[in-house]
Computed example of a mutant assay.
Amino acid sequence: MIQGLTLLFLMQLLGEGLVFWLHLPLPGPLMGMLILAGWLVWRGAVPEGLRQASGGLLQHLMLLFIPAVAGVMMHFGRVAHEWLPFLAAGIGGAAVTLVVTALTLRWMLRRSGQPLTDDVPEEAA
């Protein structure tokens, strides 16, 4: 697990360095995650340490939203004054996320050879 966390931090550092060096208009952690995604696709598998570290982070993902919510609440007056762009960004972001997630799932199911069906099993109905 330590190797997985180290890899995540190194990829973030590499992304920060590339963004700074190339003057790219992207956040460094995003660039690091793109590099990590490319490396994982090239490698064809996820190392066990990275799987454990990312699984632990994903289990506690809600904790990562606490600073963002606190930041929004600190500027609640501005949000109340400019509620329409805030609402549009929230709804638009959720819609884009939903579409991208559905397309990614469909692509992964096709790649794995599993059938794409709309049938609901009897137990789930």
Results as ranks from 00 to 15, higher is better:
54 S>H: 08
94 A>F: 11
41 V>T: 01
124 A>R: 03
52 Q>G: 00
125 A>Y: 05
117 T>P: 04
69 V>I: 12
34 L>V: 15
97 T>K: 02
117 T>Y: 08
13 L>Y: 11
78 R>Q: 00
54 S>P: 02
42 W>R: 11
57 L>M: 14
119 D>L: 15
75 H>R: 08
120 V>L: 08
79 V>H: 01
2 I>G: 06
60 H>C: 07
81 H>V: 15
66 I>F: 08
73 M>C: 03
58 L>N: 02
63 L>R: 09
15 G>W: 04
27 P>K: 10
81 H>F: 13
81 H>P: 02
30 L>Y: 12
114 Q>Y: 07
123 E>N: 04
54 S>R: 08
40 L>W: 00
79 V>Q: 00
79 V>E: 00
25 P>I: 10
21 W>C: 01
105 L>W: 15
95 A>L: 15
37 A>T: 11
51 R>A: 15
85 P>W: 12
22 L>G: 02
50 L>K: 13
34 L>N: 05
54 S>N: 05
61 L>P: 01
91 I>K: 04
124 A>W: 13
101 T>Q: 14
46 V>N: 06
81 H>S: 13
79 V>N: 00
7 L>V: 14
110 R>I: 00
13 L>C: 05
121 P>V: 03
42 W>Y: 06
71 G>M: 04
53 A>N: 10
45 A>D: 08
30 L>Q: 10
53 A>I: 09
47 P>D: 05
44 G>E: 03
59 Q>C: 07
115 P>Y: 10
117 T>W: 09
51 R>D: 11
95 A>M: 14
71 G>Y: 02
56 G>L: 12
123 E>M: 06
122 E>D: 13
40 L>S: 01
85 P>Q: 11
109 L>A: 10
7 L>T: 15
113 G>D: 08
108 M>C: 14
39 W>A: 14
68 A>W: 02
42 W>E: 01
28 G>Y: 05
72 V>I: 14
66 I>G: 04
41 V>W: 05
101 T>V: 04
77 G>S: 11
26 L>D: 04
125 A>C: 05
10 L>H: 00
82 E>F: 12
118 D>L: 14
81 H>E: 12
108 M>Y: 10
25 P>R: 10
63 L>W: 13
90 G>Y: 06
88 A>Y: 11
102 A>E: 11
93 G>S: 04
21 W>F: 11
125 A>R: 10
121 P>W: 00
43 R>S: 02
21 W>N: 01
68 A>P: 00
36 L>D: 10
88 A>V: 05
93 G>A: 08
84 L>S: 09
119 D>G: 09
24 L>S: 05
37 A>R: 03
44 G>V: 12
49 G>W: 01
